[in-house]
Structures are given as C-alpha cells and as structure tokens.
Design a protein around this nucleic acid. Structure first.
Length: 393
RNA sequence: GUCAGGAUGGCGGAGUGGUCAAUCGCAACAGACUGUAAAUCUGUCGCCCUAACGGGCUCCCCAGGUUCGAAUCCUGGUCCUGACA
C-alpha cells in the first residue's frame, strides 16, 4: 500500500493559495479539494459512481454515526468502509468531535447567526429520542459521554476509542478526537476546551495505529489561543493539520482572522484541512489563505432544501416563479442536471416530493462546487487566483 | 318528488351558545441551513393602524329571528350530496 504524503506543487504568487497532491493508499487527491460529507456512509442520495463522475475525489464519513449504526463491527467484517460503501477512492473519517458540539447544545435547537452572535431558537427536530431539553453529551477529561440520538443509550467516546474505531473503519485520513468549542464562548472556556483538545490530540497520537492522522486546532476566535493551538499541533508528529471550531456561529470576518493567525504557523509540507466550511465565498477565503481541503454539508444540504447554486448566488427552486421556467438551473453549468432538465421540472419534483428532486439538486450543487474548485486550481497554477476570485464573486 | 345529510377563510377539514378572526393539514409568501439528530426547521397567512405591546373593522351560503352574547339555536330561502321513487 502506498504511503501517505503531501507535495506542494505550486504556490500562487500573490496569496497563500497553493496547489498540491495528497498521496493516499486509495489514490492521489489533487488539492485544493472540496470534500463532500457522507455522514452515515453515504453522500445523501448519490451513488459512488455518480460522485466519481462529478469529480469527487474523496469524502468524509462520521465515526460517531457509523459506530451507532450499523456498528463498527459490521463495517470491519465487511472489510472496512471502502468495501462496505463501494468507494475505491480516498476517505476521511471524522473523530466524533463535532458531535460534542452539535449534540451538546441545550435545548435542542438550530443555531442562527445574528450579527455574529449565535442565538439558539427552540425549534425541535421531531421524531427523535432524547430531545427533551437535555444535553446529549457530558464532557469529562477522559472523553465524552454521548446519548445516542437514536435510542437514548449512553456511549463513551475517548481519543483511544475514536482512534481504534477509525482504524477499524479503514479510512485513509483520520482526525484526532477534539473538543469542538461552541460559540460564543469566554476566553477562559475556550482555553479549557483548547487544552482538552491538545491533551486528547496527544492521546490520539499515541493510540493511533494506521492511516494518516490529522491533529485538530481549536482556540475559538481568540488570537492568542489560536496561535498557541496552531504551534502546538504543528509541533506534533501529525500527518496533516485540521482546523476546527469554525463555522459554529462566528462571523465570516472572525473565521478569516482565524485562518490568518493559524496558517502562517503551519508547515508547508503537511496538508491543511478546514473542518466544516464550504459555502462558495468561503471556498475563496480558505484557499486564498492556504487551506488545501475542506469538507462541508452545505452544497448537499442546500440542494435537498431546494437551494441551487447559480453564478453569483443561489436560487430557491421551490419558489413558484420557477414553475414555468424552461431554462436550465444554470446555463453555464455542464452537470447532468443542467444538461437534461429544466427549472420547471425540478421545481415540480420538489413540489410533489419526488426523490429524484434531491438527487438532481445534489448532483448540480456538487458539480458546481467542483467546477469552482477546479477553476481555482487552474488559476493558482497560472498565478491568477485573485482574478479567478473576482470572476466568481 | 319524498326522506336524510350538508354548506366554515385559496383548497381540504375541525369547531356545534361566550375564552373564535376561528384547531389542523395542504397551498402561498418570507426566512434559515457551513466537521448532517436536517428529503429539515422557523415565521406570516381576513382587512386596516402599530417598531412592538396592542387596537379598530368585517367574517363561518343568504335573509330574518331568539339571546346580554350566535359559525354554533329557531324560521324561511338558495345550492350541493346520498337513498328511495
């Protein structure tokens, strides 16, 4: 099996943007690269072949979800995630750290940004166990006690277990178990969370057996903490660096700051992954500041709720103004959806809740993101990143 | 023609004397969604005024009536549906 490695091939002359290659046992990842999220072992609604056709090079699977269902043992017996899911290309597994954040909110709610302050609204997700106003996680220094969102049962996650399970799943890139700091948060709490993340990073490193391991940087929106965390993680023997604790409710400016503090402190010979960010404008923000890969649910989730990417924005295809629109979603798009279907048709599918709606929409949004990223990659090679950015935004 | 049942906001459909401008679903409109408890969630949804609290007006087929008070009870009318002829 090929070893893991990273090569920087070209750096843009005016920015930190760079083009590179990540070598993995399941093939090379050309960076910058967008990483779709397949939380439960599936990028919702699409087959691996369809993802491949779109240009998806690797995707993300969540250890927490696979552990709960179907269970690590099942995947292990199946021969690992690649075989289980029928995906031959690289895979990344998340540590479960994000669920510390997402299940740790009380009451169950959707966060909403409001002038860079996170407001929690009391809106429930229906039909799930354990949503009766209780936090579903309990953090200790040892690890995190989760209450299953399926049946309420209790499960302990530790760095050691996360490593063991990620190894059993067999993804190419693993992430150290971290404590995704919520927002807003005091400096004191952010520091505690960062220190816990560092301690867990060391334990992850020690317990780690196979596959590449990325250490995760935290520190919320505090410059001193972010820099401290970046230095700390950069100094350990990780194969790559993950930046976490962003897109948790902070403003875009705060997210930009984090990148500007952190990336200059990272070694050039390791790949950098930004966890959980990937709206179209963010893609430029990240790549410009030296991020190589980034995973995000936005394109796929937005697609399922009817928001489709078009140049310079997105449209809500469910609006009745598209009911008779016989043009493609985006005329400059060459995806399967845009080549063969009209806005009116997709509008209709959403309206009657046909399953094809979600598939066509997801194909389009993923294709669109890949089109943007491919474009950026070419632009970097020609030292034209900023021109490219201007052209898309 | 006789008997029975029914007419409620764009649609379906609750409500059967006051707390009803009227539950709920759909549609409509607006909004949200960034390491996915998400094919999801939130808000508005008779008209007018208010930033909001709130206030005013009109309203449950039509016309009368009973009552302090009616979408709800009574009388008449119109229309619809089912059964029997």
């Amino acid at each position: 099996m090929a070893k893991f490695g990273f090569k920087q091939l070209h750096k843009d002359k005016k920015t930190r943007a760079r083009v590179g290659e990540i070598m993995t046992p399941h093939g090379v990842i050309r960076t910058p690269a967008f990483v779709p999220v397949g939380t439960q072992g599936s990028v919702k609604s699409l087959t691996p072949e369809e993802l491949d056709t779109i240009g998806v090079q690797l995707y993300f699977v969540n250890t927490y979800h696979m552990y709960l269902r179907p269970g690590i043992e099942v995947v292990k017996k199946a021969g690992g995630l690649h075989t289980f899911m029928h995906w031959d290309h690289p895979l990344m597994t998340d540590s479960g750290g994000f669920q510390v954040f997402s299940l740790g909110r009380s009451p169950v709610s959707f966060p909403r940004r409001r002038e860079s302050v996170l407001v929690f609204e009391e809106t429930r997700i229906p039909d799930q166990v354990g949503n009766d106003n209780k936090k579903m996680v309990k953090i200790t220094d040892d690890g995190v006690e989760f209450q299953s969102h399926w049946d309420g049962s209790t499960h302990l996650f530790t760095p050691e277990r996360s490593m063991e399970w990620q190894s059993a799943l067999g993804g190419d890139i693993h992430i150290a178990f971290d404590d995704c700091t919520p927002y807003p948060v005091s400096h004191e709490k952010a520091q505690k969370s960062m220190e816990r993340t560092h301690a867990w990073a060391m334990r992850s490193l020690k317990a780690h057996r196979q596959g590449a391991l990325y250490g995760s940087i935290q520190g919320s929106v505090y410059e001193d903490l972010r820099k401290e965390s970046a230095r700390f993680i950069a100094n350990q023997n990780f194969d790559g660096i993950a930046i976490g604790g962003v897109s948790v409710g902070e403003s875009k400016k705060e997210m930009r700051n984090v990148l500007e503090w952190v990336v200059p402190l990272l070694p050039d010979d390791k790949p950098r992954h930004l966890l959980g960010v990937g709206e179209i404008d963010d893609i430029f923000t990240m790549i410009e500041r030296g991020v190589d890969t980034f995973d995000c649910v936005a394109p796929t989730r937005l697609a399922r709720t009817g928001s489709l990417y078009v140049r310079h924005g997105q449209i809500d295809i469910t609006k009745s103004k598209y009911a008779k629109d016989l043009g493609p979603v985006e005329k400059s798009c060459t995806c399967y959806t845009c080549r063969n279907f009209t806005r009116a048709y997709i509008h209709h599918l959403f309206h009657v809740r046909e399953l094809l709606a979600y598939r066509l929409a997801t194909i389009h949004n993923l294709h669109f993101v890949h089109m943007v990223v491919n474009n950026i990659r070419e632009a970097i090679c020609a030292n034209r990143f900023l021109d490219c950015k201007r052209q898309w935004l």
